[in-house]
Amino acid sequence: MKKIWKLLSVIVVALALGACASDGESASDGGDAADKKPVVTVSTSFLRDMVKQLAGDQVTVETVIPAGEDPHGYLARPRDLKKIQGADLVLYHGLHLEAQMVEALEATGVAVTKDFTD
Score class of each variant (00 low, 15 high):
Met50Gly: 10
Val40Tyr: 00
Glu69Val: 07
Met50Asp: 06
Pro66Met: 09
Leu47Gln: 06
His72Phe: 04
Leu47Lys: 01
Val42Arg: 10
Ser43Met: 08
Pro66Ala: 14
Asp80Met: 05
Glu69Tyr: 03
Val42Ser: 09
Val59Lys: 05
His72Pro: 04
Leu75Pro: 00
Glu62Ser: 12
Val59Phe: 06
Val40Thr: 00
Leu75Cys: 01
Arg77Lys: 15
Val59Ser: 08
Phe46Val: 11
Gly56Gln: 14
Leu81Cys: 03
Lys83Val: 02
Lys82Trp: 02
Pro71Val: 03
Ala76Asp: 01
Val39Leu: 01
Pro66Leu: 11
Phe46Asp: 10
Glu69Asp: 10
Ser45Leu: 04
Thr44Ser: 14
Thr60Asp: 09
Pro66Val: 09
Ala76His: 01
Pro71Lys: 03
Thr41Asn: 00
Asp70Tyr: 03
Gln53Ser: 15
Ala67Val: 10
Thr63Pro: 12
Gln58Val: 14
Gly73Phe: 02
Lys82Arg: 10
Tyr74Leu: 03
Lys52His: 10
Gly56Ile: 15
Gly73Ile: 01
Asp80Leu: 05
Asp80Tyr: 05
Asp57Leu: 13
Leu81Glu: 15
Pro66Gly: 11
Arg77Met: 14
Pro66Thr: 07
Phe46Arg: 11
Arg77His: 12
Asp57Cys: 14
Pro78Asn: 07
Ala67His: 08
Thr41Phe: 01
Leu47Thr: 05
